[in-house]
Each structure stands twice: as structure tokens, then as C-alpha cells.
Amino acid sequence: MKKRMIRLLCAAGVLAAMACGAWAVTSPDGLVSLSYLNNTFLPSAVEKGTTAAYHKLQQTYDSAKATLDALAGKNTSGGSKQEESTVLAPKSWGEGDTVTLPTGSGALLLEGTVRVTHAGAVVDITAGGEVASGQTLKENHRYLVGEDTSAQLVVLSGGASMGVQGSYASAKGGTAATPFYDVSSADWYYEPVRYVYEKALFSGMDDRHFAPNGVMNRAMLMTVLYRMGGSPSGQLQSADVSFQDVADAAWYAPYVKWAAAQKITAGTSPDTFAPEQQVTRQQVAVLLYSFAGNYLGKQTDQRADLSGYSDLSQASDWAREALSWAVGTGIMGSSSGDRLTLSPQKSASRAEVAAMLRAFSEKLA
């Protein structure tokens, strides 16, 4: 485009020069010779015209580019972070991060919880259909922003893995409460998980996943109680209790021995502990009850009437007192939203244990 414009301007300059030359040759004065016109005047005129045209065109080009960049949001002088991606390569985002997509841009959510808001059309290409404003995106689905639409994506989970294609603007949301892709601010267990993570009571299954619906075994819970007890290293080293099913080389052996020595647990029999056994809700209640009374020296006389719980008959006799205490102190609540249930024999999820530990700390601190 630039070269074509230069050629047109140069041609105009040459025509003007030729007209002047022709007038000079035919004028009565006859002061300019044909040789001078061809060898000196015309080459000089063309060179000067080309240079002037180039500078003029460059100024026009620069001005137009600056205007387009500003309209496209790529002018960084305003302080907003504008980016562009040609591929849907996954990128890590933090809780509260906001991504704004214009018409034609798209996104692919791999992991995490992301909410979209818009006042136009956002299409779920994978499922085939539009996405209503305020909904959360589905993992492994690809999305495209429709005509005359600006879509805003907000990360609700501790982190998210999401690819963006096309132009977009992004803004950081600040420090994330947790780094977990599978824990969202919209989840009921968000605050409990945040609490146990910040207090270093127990971490995720890996750096990015907490596994809230995963289960916890008895050995893992002993390590948590040890940390809740202030990590007393002296007690850990002096504990001299053994179980047939707890090898001295096992990573959890010191914590199991400590818990038994402090009379927090007596094991599943006089000489077994069952370290890999999943803890049930009633077992968590019993262990916290023992930890509060035998180790922390707290009053444990609070009781709740459990007669209204529809599944009370499923609770073991040895667990009912602890369950009544746990419900009475608010450490344990109903496992169902529409009726009173204890689910005593159900394996306690990691999210449920986190909720009980947070409530325990708040009630008995």
C-alpha cells in the first residue's frame, strides 16, 4: 500500500516536472536546454518528490496505526493490561482474576471454576448452544464470544487452567485464599478448606488439588491432630506405643504412637490401629471428643438431643456420647439439608473433616 502510494505521488511529481520542462523549452526565452532537463532537472525532481512523499506517507501511517492501536486497546500508556493469543494454550489464573473477551475471542476451560457475565451472546461450541450470563463454564468446553458482545470471565476457584484465543484484557484479583483448582468461593466448604490450609493442618493432594470429596484415613487424621496440638516434638519423640499394623518405618508411625500415648486413641483393638482405614463421621466425632477432653483438658459436658435424627439407630453405642457432644457444641451438623441426619457410618470427606476442625477450633479455642 505504501509503495503504491509513493509511486502515484512520484508520477504526479514527474508529470509536473515534465510540464514545466516543456514550457521552458517552448518559451521565447529558451533558457533551459533539453540536455539539462533530461539529465539534471527531472532526476532531481523525482528524488525530491519521492523523499517528500515517503515522509508524508510515513506520518499518515504512524498516525493511523496509533489510532487503531488505541481503539483495539493495545496502547499500554493507559495502564490496562491488553494481550493477544493466537492459540488456546492453557494458562494459570488465580482466584479473582478477570478476563474480558471481545467479539470473536474464545476460551477453553480445563480446570477450575470460572463465571461468565455478558449482555449479548456467548456460545458453548462444545455443547452447541448459548451460555446464560452468570453461569459457570464447564471444564473441557470451548467458548466463543458472539457479535456485539463483551464477555467477562471471573475465576472463582483458588486457581484455574484456561486457554484464551484472540484479543483480551486481564486484571489480577489479588492474593488467592488457596491455590486449589477444585475449591471455589461458591462451595460450602470454601472457608473450612481455607482455614485448614492457612493453619497448615493439612494440605492438598498435590499443589493444585485439595480433593474435597476425597476421604481421609485414620493415620492422616492423627497427623492433623498432632498439628492442632501445637506439634509438640518432645511428646512425639518420647511416645512408646506400638501396634502390629504400624511399621516403625511408616511415615505416620510417630503420629499414631503420639496419639495413643496421649490417650487420644486406643486403636481398633489392643494391638491394631488400622492406619489405612477410612475414618467415618462418628469416628471423627469420637477422636475430637477424646482430643478435647484427654489432651486439651476442655470441658466436654455439652450434649444435644439426638432423638430427632432419623438415622440415629445407625450410630454405634460407643460413639453416641461423642456424637451428642459434637452436635451440641456445633462441631457436627446434619449431613442432609432437608432433614436431620447424622450419617455416622459414612466415610468423612476431606471437606467434612476440614469443616469439623474449623468448628472445633472456633468453639474450643
Rank of each mutant, 00 (worst) to 15 (best):
D207H: 10
S233R: 07
L236W: 03
A177I: 02
A16T: 12
A89C: 11
Y289R: 02
V196T: 06
E352C: 03
L37S: 10
E321K: 15
G214H: 05
I264E: 01
Y143E: 01
T51Q: 09
G333A: 14
Q237V: 10
K298L: 11
A66W: 01
E362H: 07
A66S: 15
D305E: 02
T103V: 03
P28R: 11
N140L: 09
A354V: 02
V99N: 09
G214V: 01
D69H: 07
E139I: 08
A239E: 03
P179T: 00
M18V: 15
Y189C: 14
D29S: 15
A160D: 03
L8H: 10
E191R: 12
A219S: 12
P232V: 08
L296A: 09
D187Q: 12
A351E: 01
D317T: 12
P102M: 11
Y195R: 05
A66P: 00
S290T: 03
D248N: 04
R194K: 13
T50A: 15
K81N: 09
V193C: 12
P102W: 07
D301P: 06
R339I: 06
I331W: 14
L357K: 11
M222Y: 08
A351D: 00
A19D: 09
A66Q: 01
G128P: 13
S316F: 00
G120T: 09
G297M: 10
A119W: 02
G159C: 05
G134V: 08
K81A: 15
E198K: 13
Q235M: 06
G173C: 07
G49A: 15
E47D: 15
G230K: 02
T300H: 07
T126Q: 01
L110F: 07
G293N: 09
S63R: 04
D305H: 06
D148S: 13
G104L: 08
N140F: 12
A70H: 04
L34H: 11
M222S: 10
H141D: 00
Y289K: 06
T67H: 11
V256W: 01
L42M: 11
A274K: 11
A285E: 04
M220F: 14
G333K: 07
P275R: 04
M205A: 13
K298R: 15
G158M: 02
S77K: 08
V145N: 10
L287P: 05
W258D: 01
A260R: 10
N294V: 05
V164C: 11
G204T: 00
M222F: 01
A53Y: 08
L287Y: 12
D245R: 04
V215Y: 14
L364W: 00
L287E: 03
T268H: 00
N140T: 04
A45H: 05
G297S: 09
L340E: 00
T265I: 08
V353I: 12
K257Q: 06
G78D: 15
E362I: 05
L68Y: 07
Q59W: 03
T272L: 10
A64L: 12
G120M: 09
A253G: 06
F180G: 12
A261K: 03
K298P: 04
